[in-house]
Design a protein around this nucleic acid. Structure first.
Length: 320
DNA sequence: GCAAGGAACCGCCAAA
DNA sequence: CTTTTGGCGGTTCCTT
């Protein structure tokens, strides 16, 4: 059974928003063909706001398979983000097409500022959604009835998926794959991507999938708590108490099970979360530090410097 | 970038 | 006799 994924591009759309999720679907397809001998699971296509050719935000001229107005049906419809979102959101014809296609698609969503286009089309009323950091307020302005989630990397509201940034778009695509083909395949693809992207350290940027992996661990509950409360007191004594073990025993068991001692594990997750925030556009470093549980900016800076050899501000400038 | 105090980690050991 | 537990203290790393 072929599942069609349609990605909308428009002038000034962000190429990575298109490429990231499509990469996930493409890899999943290939993996399933190789391991199950089945026909490709996903057929991906990029459609243009109009005509067949759009200039992306990086200057690349992308030739789309067709215009969105020509698409009769698809199974998953995604809208990319990018600097051109505002023009796209002011194009009544395009919004009409977006509404029409979303209306006849089992599920649809957006990456980054693509949410603003969905909102402009009136598709996010009474929905939970998110978008790029810097545009959360714009989102509530466009659609006052949208429940804007300011914390999440990506948000699902029934059949509508919105995500915060490029890496979040990948994360969201993985969630769609998980819904279609199950957790184990989604995890495999996530791992493959992590290797492909050569992200050192760990895979925590795919937060949801790490969370899935945690289900296997005897410390699952504790780990989910940590994942969801990175700004809480997560010193060893506190964690041990939460786990109902003596400190000594906790450190011993945790290290044996997880492979890293608790404090280090927490620090790694905090760093990874901070990277996510910086990659999705930078709120004040102070705010990043607070949300991730680093006491202050200095602590954040030290951990970055030591683990990545780069300052947070430089990291944001380079990847954000 | 430094000193001083604190937290984390882990080997060791005795008790359960 | 083996395994698990948890206190102790030294070293290292981190925070202030």
């Amino acid at each position: 059974v072929t599942h069609r994924v349609t990605m909308l591009a428009y002038p000034g759309a962000q190429m990575l928003d298109v490429a990231g999720p499509l990469e996930v679907f493409a890899r999943t397809s290939r993996w399933i063909e190789e391991h199950h001998g089945r026909q490709a699971a996903y057929l991906v296509e990029v459609v243009a706001s109009e005509g067949g050719e759009v200039e992306m935000s990086n200057g690349l001229r992308l030739i789309a398979s067709r215009a969105i107005s020509d698409v009769q049906r698809t199974d998953t419809f995604l809208v990319a983000g990018g600097v051109g979102w505002a023009e796209a959101a002011n194009d009544p014809g395009l919004l009409q097409s977006v509404r029409r296609l979303a209306g006849r698609t089992p599920r649809f969503g957006s990456v980054c500022t693509g949410s603003l286009i969905l909102a402009s089309a009136g598709l996010l009323a009474k929905r939970a959604a998110t978008t790029h950091w810097a545009y959360l307020d714009v989102l509530s302005r466009i659609e006052p009835n949208c429940h804007v989630d300011r914390e999440s990397i990506f948000v699902r509201s029934d059949h509508i998926f919105t995500s915060a940034g490029v890496t979040a778009g990948i994360d969201m695509a993985l969630a769609l794959v998980e819904a279609d083909h199950g957790r184990s395949i989604a995890l495999k693809i996530a791992q493959e991507l992590v290797m492909y992207l050569r992200r050192p350290g760990n895979q925590a940027q795919f937060s949801r999938h790490i969370a899935a992996e945690l289900k296997e661990s005897p410390f699952a509950e504790l780990q989910s708590f940590v994942l969801e409360n990175l700004d809480a007191d997560l010193r060893v004594a506190a964690l041990a108490a939460r786990a109902g073990l003596s400190e000594r025993q906790f450190v011993r068991r945790f290290s044996a099970e997880i492979g890293t001692p608790p404090a280090e594990w927490v620090r790694t997750l905090r760093l990874e979360r901070a990277r996510q925030y910086l990659e999705q556009g930078t709120p004040a470093l102070k705010e990043v530090a607070r949300r991730c549980g680093f006491g202050d900016e200095q602590a954040l800076r030290r951990v970055f410097q030591r683990n990545l050899g780069i300052l947070p501000s430089d990291y944001a400038a380079r990847f954000g």
